Structure formats: C-alpha cells, structure tokens
Simulated assay, not measured.
Amino acid sequence: MRTIAQINEKILSRSAVVWTVEEVKARIADMGVTQIAKEVDVITTGTFEPMESSGAIINLGHTDPPIKIRKCWLDGISAYAGFGAVDLYLGATQEVDSIGIDDIPDVEEAKERGGGHVIEDLIAGKAVHLRAIGQVTDCYPRASFETTITRETINQFYLFNPRNLYQNFIVGVNGGDRPLYTYLGNLQPRLANAVYSNPGAISPLFNDPDLKLIGIGTKIFMGGGIGYITWEGTQHFPLQKRLENRTPVGPAATLALIGDAKQMNPYWVRGCYFKNYGSSLMIGVGVPLPVLNEEVVNACAVQDRDIVAPIVDFSIPRRVRPTFGSVSYAQLKTGKISIDGKSVRVAPLASIFRSRQVALELKEWIDKGEFTLTQPVESIPMDRAFIPQDRSASQIMLD
C-alpha cells in the first residue's frame, strides 16, 4: 500500500494521518483492519519503564596539562574509564563506592542514589562534581583532576543502552516467609502482592511481534529526544514460545538504543532506586510503526486480553524459578489477580500514564512534520537462543 518514502512525503507536507496505537485498538472493531490501513499512515507506540541496562557515554575534553583518566567519580559514583583518556561510561545501576562516598555530603542520601540519578541531573542541566585519577605518562603527565561539569561543559553526552524495549517480561511474586527486595521492588511474603513491569498492549514490541518493521537504524523517540535502534539488545531471546497472535509468553526480544542526551528532557529520563536492590533508570521510548499494509494494522489490533506474562515465584533462589502459570495483561491492569484461589493485589512498575504520553508526544512531532521515519538498514536477528552460564564450555561444545 505505501512505502516509508511516501509516508515521509506526507509527513513533511503535514498531511500524514497519525494515530496512537490505543486509537487503533479502540476503533478496530468499528472500522475494521482494511479501512484503518487505508486511512492511517503511522501508528505510534510508547513505554515508560525501568531499563537498568542503560548508561551514558561522556567525553570531558582534555585538561591542561592532559590527563589519562583511569578512575573517575561523578557525584561520588564510579564511572568506567577504560576507553580513551577522557572518555567515560556511566552505568545506570552504578552505586557510590567506598572511595566516592567521600565526595557526598549526605551519606544516607547517597545510599539511594546511583548512576541513573547522575544521568538525570546532567540531562536537567544540573552541575555534577567530578574527581579523576590519572595514569601518568609522557603524553599525559597530570595525576589527578577535580572540577564541576554540566551538559554544556562536556563534548559528547549520549545514552548508549545495551538492553531496552523489552518485548515482554514477568510478574513477580513471593511465596516464601520473608520480604524480598528485587528488581521488581518489594515482594511481600505469602503472595501478599505481585508486580509487573511492561505496560502491555501499548508497548512497542507487542505491536510488531516479529520485528518486521523495527530494525537497525529505526528512528525513535528516546528520553524526549531522537534516538536510534543500533542492534539486538543483550539477552535478546526471540525464540521464546509465542501465542497464535505471535506475542511471546515471557521475556523475548530486546533492543540496544542510542540517543543524544543533550536533546533529552528529565521528564522522560528519571533515576530511580529499589530498596535493598539498587538504582536504575526509567526511560520514555516511543516507536513509530509505518502502515505499509494491512498486516501492520492487524498486529496493532492486539489487546491486553490477548497477551500474557508468567507469574514467577522469587522465593526460590534459582535461575529458573517455579511459576504459577500465566496471566493476561487485562487481568493485571484490574489491580488483582488470582493465584491458587487467592486474590493478590498487583501493581505495575511501568507508568501506564507516561507510556501513553510518549505515544501522544511522538504523534504530535510527526503531525508537525518534525519527525520523519527511517528505513532500517538491517533486520534484527530472530533466531537467537538464550545461553545460560550453568554449563561448562565442554558441555556446550558437545551439545
């Protein structure tokens, strides 16, 4: 029906018809797939959820005399300095260490602060304290350096996230006798609560389940700025079992993303902390889906009642934990699920409200002609298996 080039012509002339994926789902019964495919050019999707495999690349620029940084702390939080002389990588989950804590006036506050919070502060234009230790060489004679930086006083500052945009995830519960503090938050004993992370049917990868539209080079909304899909994400597992509608029954595809943090807005990039677990980063990510044919609309018609997630018991400390079966996202969003006949209250980590806002914001950008689509330069591999680290190399070779 259409090509991306044709859609971009309409976007630039401000004649493109753009709907959010929720609008498509709400009108599919009345209008039908064929009519929506004729009328709509782009469908926008969005999510706002914790994505802990994230971080920022920072280039400081050279000092005088120059320094080859080997250890560095930003507001007391260690940044990786194993690249070039003044290149850093600040991970979202990095926490204050025993050396960096000397830079923090409020030690108690520091315990609930991590790399994600520093990234948020830099995006917001706030000043961040930097302390660095160098390796003295003939070309880099400086041994140490201390200063204050902002996003305006550094060169490159971009997010490069190895694993974002989870296609699906799990529901966490605790069948044990004590509270558990996890990456899903506090799980109360004896199945007193349940937590899920994915926003469900409005999430980008549920609406392109086989990644036929999304690929390397796809331009996206990322943290309030423009980003791109760069590769498959870590732990990318597209071979996960799938329902007839092609949506996975558990964690499946993931994507690696990159975006200029100097364009981003702290409303869409927020540091967060999980008690007794650690810090993370919540990011708003929106993906536009070009309506090339009816198949695109048909995939976007999937509803919360049509997708499921496994209920996983965290009280068993193993890589493969027992489950209490699966539950639909429609049931999760009621706030209660039933486990072995017991009513269990449930809440999302993802912000459903902000996930919707991402899709709406991206729709507005496209309506204004400020955001065009890109043709992927390569498809995301859909044949990746998941390799655990509980077998020896010789066993893997024999397999």
Rank of each mutant, 00 (worst) to 15 (best):
A261Y: 05
I316T: 15
P266Q: 02
I202G: 11
E378P: 03
V358E: 01
N186F: 03
R242M: 03
K71F: 14
L289E: 02
G286F: 04
V24M: 04
K25M: 10
V86G: 01
F353W: 13
A194F: 02
E49T: 15
K342I: 13
E378V: 03
T147C: 14
V327T: 11
V86D: 10
L373I: 04
R142P: 01
D340N: 14
G61S: 09
I283S: 06
G84N: 15
D399S: 15
A26Y: 02
A5G: 10
P388N: 11
V107D: 00
L12A: 12
Q357M: 04
T323P: 10
S338C: 09
V320W: 06
K68F: 04
K336T: 11
T150A: 08
H62F: 12
A299C: 12
P376L: 01
W268A: 07
Q375P: 00
V118R: 06
A16W: 07
D210V: 01
Q135G: 03
K111I: 04
F169T: 11
T247P: 08
D121T: 01
F83N: 11
D177C: 07
F274R: 13
R270W: 03
T230I: 12
V21F: 00
F160M: 09
I352C: 01
E370A: 04
N155E: 13
V312P: 05
Y140E: 09
V173Y: 02
E364A: 11
S379F: 03
P376K: 09
M222Y: 03
M31V: 09
G46M: 02
L213S: 01
G278N: 09
A85E: 13
Q94P: 07
F221Q: 07
D399H: 15
A309D: 04
D30Y: 00
W19K: 11
A81H: 02
V297A: 11
A301M: 08
I226E: 05
A124Q: 01
V171H: 09
K25R: 14
V346P: 00
I77V: 15
G32C: 05
C300F: 02
G233I: 07
A253P: 06
M282L: 12
V346W: 06
V320M: 08
E52F: 10
V107T: 14
S13C: 12
T153Y: 00
G215K: 07
N193W: 09
G200I: 00
L332P: 05
F145E: 06
G91I: 10
